[in-house]
Amino acid sequence: MPVFHTKTIEGILEPVAQQICHLVIMHEEGEVDGKAIPDLTGPVAAVQAAVSNLVRVGKETVQTTEDQVMKRDMPPAFIKVENSCSKLVQAAQMLKADPYSVPARDYLIDGSRGILSGTSDLLLTFDEAEVRKVIRVCKGILEYLTVAEVVETMEDLITYTKNLGPGMTKMSKMIEERQQELTHQEHRQMLFNSLNTVKQLLPVLISAIKIFVAIKSTHSAGVDEAERNRCFTFEKMSAEISEIIRVLQLTTWDEDTWA
C-alpha cells in the first residue's frame, strides 16, 4: 500500500523519509554511540532557510486562498515545521559544545522527523485543497445535468449542449490529471472507469434529450418512454460523477480500513 498519496508528494518526501528511517535504525542499534558528530551548523542553517521560505509561501497561500479548510489546517503544519527546525538549531549548538552529546543526537532525529512530518502535513493540506477544486467542478456539472429535465425545444438543446460541453471537457481534464497523480492503483482505476463511463454517456444523454424534444414537439406517441430514457441516462451519469467525487476524497488509509 503506497505511503504517500500522490506522486508529487512521494517524489519530494520518499528519499528523505528513507534516510531518516535508516538514521533512526542506526541510532537505535547503537551504531552511532560513542561517535563524535561534527559541526552541523551549515546543514542546519540550510534547513532553517528552507523552512523560512516554505512557511512564508505557505502563509501567502493561506492569506490569498478562499478555501476555509486550508486556512484552518495549514497553520498547525507551519508550527510543527518551525518547532522541529528549532530543535535542529538547538542540537547543532549543543554539538558544537559537545560532539558526543546524546541529547543533541536525539534532538537531531526528532527535529528531522518533525520536519518530514510537518512538510507532509503541509503538502497534504495543500493537496486536499486541490482536490476540493476538482470536486467543485464536478458538482457544477452535476447541477447542470439536472437542467436536462427542462430542455423542451431544439434551441434549448443547442444552448444546453454548448454550455455542457466545455464544462465536461474541463472536468475530464482535471480528473485525468488527478488520476495520473495518484499512487494508489485501485483509486486510479476507479477514476478511469467512472470517467470513461461519463464520457460515453454524454452523447447518449444528448441524443435522448433530442428524441424527447422531437417527440414532444410533434405531439407523437412515446413521450413518456423518451422521458424515462432521458432520466435513466441522466441518473447513470450523475451516479458516476458522484462516484468520482467519492473516490477523489479517498486516501490510502480509507482503503486499508475498508480492506
Binding site: T8, P15, V57
Partner: peptide, 29 residues
C-alpha cells in the same frame, strides 16, 4: 501559486536530506 509551495517543500526536503546525510556519513565513517 501552486507550484511555489511544492518547490519550497522540495528545497526543504533536500536540505533535510543533506543534514541527515551529514549525520549518517560521519556516523558510518
Amino acid at each position: 501559486d501552486a507550484g511555489e509551495m511544492v518547490r519550497q517543500a522540495r528545497v526543504l526536503a533536500q536540505a533535510t536530506s543533506d543534514l541527515v546525510n551529514a549525520m549518517r556519513s560521519d556516523a558510518e565513517a
